[in-house]
Nucleic acid binder design. Structure first.
Length: 823
RNA sequence: GCCGAAGUGGCGGAACUGGCAGACGCGCGCGACUCAAAAUCGCGAGUCCUUUGGACGUGUGGGUUCGAUUCCCACCUUCGGCACCA
């Protein structure tokens, strides 16, 4: 300790951090006698340095975990590393350093930086997804999914990033230009055999958020992503013999289907094409195949297509309708074929007008008589069914699905007639998890020429990633190029076979890391049931919203799949989710080295200390919003902490006659603040916690001037104040707590209770308005009756001036603190 | 195009169920301390009007109300998501 009495955060902070660690102060063990709280913050990718975003995400999470701990919960707050992934491999290529070495060196560095935050992580729980003992279980989960029919292999046109040389999940392709989420390169389509997880089996359940407290925004993003639409499947017989199956959300417009459109790649195209159209169809298919997805899916593109020469029969009215192919129909959605109803669908309308196809009106507002030829655009609003045989006169609303009487009636009828059936379709695709990269968990499968695909027997896990590897960006998995690694005997016939040389999407690793934290060293399974039964589910999960349709949907799927296999319990893994916003550069752009707007937290910590940094991060903006960074602003919290230090370490005040009224005011200020601060911690309103504490600091200075120093009320104020600030600024709070002579540690002390009686004001400032405008303020005793308030307001001189002798029309007393006199 | 979120001083932001707009802080100005500076402390400030005092003021326009940053309608701007999804 320094000789002088000044605030030296760089001396205090490492000292307490060392003590907390030595004492295992934040170790959380199963304790059935206490209520548990599992606080989880998204684990970092070991990119090299802990940046501002990490601090911004983790500091409030830590503060809230500390708050919960002081409230008496047994709090588990673990930390780990999402250690597999592309950047490590790209670094290997660029700097000629092994991905493993690069990753573990970064982890070492970041672990130290994380410790400098003074967060209350239980480091015994650390889990690193690239550790063999970790990915052994990632592979084990893959095998469980495989055995339960939730992992399958399929040849499909998949998204491929030509820069990162790997396939991607649909979720990892973003934006209008369909670019790789990691590197921003436009993706291309490749026909490849890949592993998928059947997340679509859980589409409906994933839409259900009952029982979990997740932000509306995330629920909306996931709901839109899953994209459920209700409608019907309908079979259209063709003259070639085969049926065309379509999905439609508007079965009520079936009588208006005047042609059909297949995606160019649809398997029936060949059969349906008439000899005289073969050349045209082949040419169109080839042209469509050459286009990129971006070109093809551009909404403003003119609708092209060609007639196949084939005809289908509309099952509801036996109409003979032509079958076309066009690239505005996508093979990947629905059945890859549509019934076209140009009168009631904008796309079909455009196509019909361009190619001179029939437009038949089947829904029209009552009283109108227009027909297809009169239309300027497709009619997609409400009306009454016409030209629809038995359904003429049925009202059609704009409601979707069975809420629409027309859709309901026609769907029921279709089922009876066996023309089709009610059906639900989703935008969600199965999760593609194969990656043609080295730095990931190898897929534990073996390809045998005679036995086909064989799972690796469980007792052979983990399939260890070889260290001796060449990182050539070839588009093939580096594991394939390893001279020996892939060669294994088939587990079934023992003949030479080959390992799957792809690795798993790292989102697979992060789908279950919250389970590995429970028992990172457990060898008997992915987690120890005893720990699971006590700690799960996660009570509070915090992280960025950018994971709404990736990690956050995968981990819910994963949990539900494990539940159905009997591995875990409960419908959801995380009960409460809160998202932080992001810290931007001072120029409001994303912090990035290339823009030169990166501010390194380490430098600020070295200058101001972790506590000032933590306080500023929680103070400078609404946590769930984020915003541009301004280093200058840290001066505020920095001065505040210095003022607090001085307030607590220097005796003050002239010590003249202490007035009881003043001490009552002091207690009121303390307990009112405590009430607000408790509420704000509970509700993730961190910026106002700091404001309230700053306000109280300013008031405490005034009370000290008035001679409060040395009284029991002053002592209480000091203790409660330190406890309130402890979750935000743990080091200075611990130091001053010790200097007050309080027992170690403030972080395991009991959160103070609000003394409601003390918090209550005994005088209130009555706001007096005339015609809604503020005119006067009068101090009256708390509990003054409304009549007395009214009288006091009317008696006010200022008010009399505004009344100008008139009698008020009406006097309103509101909220026990305001009188409005209406003239 | 569809869906969602947000617009408050020079800046970040506050305002619990409609009830004192601008708390708290940054920056700024003035003063004290100092030979001087830094640090610290004190005071000041939404805009406009000459003042004691008043008018206006929460993206714009309207509405409901005794009273609107808060509720309703329309519009503008910014950001995010989805997008030929049948």
């Amino acid at each position: 300790m320094s000789d002088d009495n000044r605030y030296y955060p760089t001396e205090i902070e490492p000292r307490w951090q060392a003590k907390w660690e030595a004492d295992g102060l934040y170790h959380a063990d199963v304790d059935e006698s206490r209520p548990k709280h599992y606080a989880l913050t998204m684990l970092p990718y070991p990119s090299g340095d802990l940046h501002m975003g990490h601090w911004f995400a983790m500091t409030p999470s830590d503060a809230r975990a500390r708050f919960k701990r002081m409230q008496g919960y047994n709090v588990l707050f673990p930390m780990g590393f999402d250690a597999f992934g592309l950047p490590a491999e790209n670094a290997a290529i660029k700097r000629n350093i092994h991905p493993k070495q690069w990753t573990y060196k970064n982890i070492e560095r970041m672990r130290g930086q994380l410790k400098s935050m003074g967060a209350s992580f239980d480091w015994r729980r650390e889990a690193i997804s690239a550790d063999e003992e970790y990915y052994k279980w990632t592979q084990w989960f893959f095998l469980q999914l495989y055995k339960n029919g939730l992992a399958y292999r399929k040849l499909a046109a998949v998204d491929f990033c030509p820069t990162d040389n790997t396939t991607l999940a649909r979720e990892q392709v973003v934006g209008e230009n369909r670019v790789c989420e990691r590197c921003g390169t436009p993706v291309i389509k490749k026909e490849l055999e890949q592993w998928f997880f059947k997340i679509t089996d859980y589409a409906d359940e994933l839409l259900n958020f009952v029982g979990i407290d997740w932000p509306e925004r995330v629920q909306t993003l996931q709901t839109n992503w899953i994209g459920r639409s209700e409608g019907a499947r309908v079979f259209f017989p063709t003259e070639a013999g085969e049926n065309i199956e379509v999905f439609t959300t508007r079965p009520d417009t079936l009588w208006g289907a005047t042609f059909m459109v297949l995606a160019p790649e649809h398997p029936l195209v060949e059969k349906l094409t008439a000899p005289e159209q073969q050349a045209a169809v082949a040419a169109y298919k080839e042209a469509a195949g050459r286009q990129t997805d971006i070109e093809r899916e551009a909404t403003d593109k003119e609708k092209t297509g060609v007639f196949t020469g084939g005809y289908a029969i509309n099952p509801v009215n036996q109409a003979r309708i032509p079958v076309w192919i066009a690239d505005y129909v996508l093979l990947s959605y629905g059945t890859g074929a549509i019934m076209a109803v140009p009168a009631h669908d904008a796309r079909d309308f455009e196509f019909a007008r361009k190619h001179g196809l029939d437009i038949r009106v089947v829904i029209r507002p009552a009283g109108e008589t227009w027909e297809g030829a009169d239309l300027e655009a497709a009619w997609s609003h409400e009306g009454v069914m016409v030209n629809s045989g038995p359904f003429d006169g049925t009202p059609a609303t704009e409601d979707k699905g069975r809420a629409n009487p027309a859709i309901k009636a026609v769907t029921d009828w279709l089922e009876k007639q066996q023309f089709g059936a009610a059906a639900v379709n989703y935008r969600l695709r199965d999760w593609l998890i194969s990656r043609q990269r080295y730095w990931g968990a190898p897929i534990p499968m073996i390809h045998c020429k005679t036995c086909g695909i064989q799972p690796v027997p469980q007792d052979q896990l983990p399939i260890v990633l070889p260290d001796d590897i060449e990182w050539l960006p070839t588009g093939e998995s580096p594991l394939k190029l390893h001279p020996t690694w892939k060669n294994v005997p088939c587990p079934n016939c023992n003949e030479p076979a080959e390992r799957d040389t792809d690795t798993m999407d790292t989102f697979m690793c992060s789908s279950w890391y919250h389970l590995r934290y429970l028992s990172p060293d457990f060898a008997g399974g992915p987690f120890d049931d005893r720990e699971y039964n006590y700690w799960m589910p996660v009570d509070t999960y915090t992280g960025g919203i950018e994971h709404a349709t990736m990690h956050l949907i995968y981990t819910r799927f994963f949990h539900k799949a494990l539940r159905d296999m009997g591995i875990v319990e409960g419908a959801e893994p995380m009960l409460q989710l809160r998202n932080q916003g992001s810290v931007l550069g001072a120029d409001s752009a994303k912090m990035s080295k290339s823009k030169g707007n990166v501010v390194a937290p380490d430098e600020l910590v070295a200058e101001y200390g972790a506590d000032a940094m933590r306080a500023y991060l929680m103070f400078f903006t609404r946590w769930n919003v984020g915003g541009p960074w301004n280093s200058q602003g840290i001066e505020g919290p920095n001065r505040w902490l210095r003022r607090v230090w001085t307030l607590f370490t220097e005796p003050g005040g002239p010590g003249n006659t202490v007035q009881m009224a003043m001490l009552k005011d002091l207690r009121r200020a303390v307990h009112q603040t405590l009430k607000r601060v408790t509420h704000d911690y509970e509700n993730f309103e961190f910026n106002t916690i700091i404001s309230s504490l700053m306000e109280l600091t300013n008031e405490l200075y005034r009370f000290r001037e008035q001679g409060a120093y040395g009284t029991t009320q002053w002592r209480e104020a000091q203790e409660v104040f330190l406890q309130m600030m402890a979750p935000v600024t743990p080091h200075i709070a611990e130091e001053l707590w010790a200097r007050l002579g309080k027992p170690y540690s403030i972080h395991t002390s009991k959160w103070p209770a609000v003394d409601e009686a003390a918090a209550k004001a005994d005088e209130i400032e009555l706001v007096v308005q005339v015609n809604g405008k503020l005119r006067d303020k009068i101090v009256v005793p708390a509990g003054t009756s409304e009549a007395d308030m009214q009288a006091a307001a009317l008696a006010s001189e200022t008010v009399q001036k505004f009344l100008e002798g008139k009698t008020p029309k009406k006097v309103i007393v509101a909220g026990g603190k305001l009188v409005n006199i209406v003239l």
